[in-house]
Design a protein around this nucleic acid. Structure first.
Lengths: 149, 149
DNA sequence: TATTGTTATACTCTATAACTATA
DNA sequence: TATAGTTATAGAGTATAACAATA
């Protein structure tokens, strides 16, 4: 290890930050747009995925997990409930809370989405070569970490 | 190379797609939120970055580059113009178009942002170890590619 | 007092549709 | 006809603020 002159933090960090910003903008728009096909918004799909993987959860749980305000998560859940895709039951011990779960219709909708090869992103992902997939997988934990508050 | 049974495309692609979705949601919200600090929205900053790097451009150029509709880019540019951060001049040969450029105020604002260590994302990036930075850099081209239409 | 959830309101980003002007 | 830009309108996603109910 040789002694280096101190790096300017901005010079070091900014290109990466800006590259990240530039890469994620279009990707995010694409995710949002193509997620919408079929009537489920992106947030709705993300919430349904979380309920599938992690089971029942409260508004506040989900809001924390997704890093949004409880009011925002409440709106998403209300929309899903209105479609009959999730249902809520009072929390057994805490009278303030409700536990949300996927309904059968919600599970079915989710399965349908997955088997539909529903968006072009899925196709784009399968078209990646192994090296690209590996690069993506390796970066996921870092991306998740950067998304934490 | 051995012969493999055909992979179920969904089984192969979906976990990655969903992991990506989950990783990018919170990160995107963070980028958006923290970009807003200082009065510039995320889209505005991205556009200013592009004008800095690539020079004058038209609404349609920028819309294509960011993969949004020209009307949407028009709104972003109008906001920046209203703040005096960009200025437009008629295209020299095509009477329909305008060329947008950063103003001095725009450049100054951009420099200010960068030297401010303006958001916690920049700090989070500098806190990454070399392996994480390498993983991120390696994934950027893949992310950009996935964001293309 | 702190937390959960709700209601009301507003802003940003983006889209679609319809239009004008220029190529 | 096709393209660039504008105007009008709408919807999703999210935020802040104020409130009620419960812990």
């Amino acid at each position: 290890m040789t002694v280096r002159p101190p790096l300017e933090p901005d010079a070091a960090a900014d290109p990466l930050g800006e590259d990240l910003l530039r890469a994620i903008g279009p990707l995010m728009r694409r995710l949002r747009t193509e997620s919408n096909a079929g009537g489920l918004s992106w947030s709705q799909r993300v919430v349904m995925g979380r309920l599938t993987r992690e089971g029942a959860a409260t508004t506040a749980d989900l809001a924390r997990a997704e890093n949004v305000k409880p009011q925002s998560m409440g709106a998403t859940l209300a929309a899903l409930e209105g479609e009959g895709l999730v249902a809520r039951t009072p929390h057994p011990t805490d009278g303030r809370q409700f536990l949300y779960e996927l309904t059968e219709k919600g599970s079915a909708t989710r399965d349908e989405y997955r088997s539909l090869k529903r968006d072009r992103l899925a196709a784009a992902l399968t078209a990646l070569d192994e090296e690209e997939i590996a690069a993506l997988r390796a970066a996921l934990p870092v991306l998740r970490h950067l998304g934490e508050n």
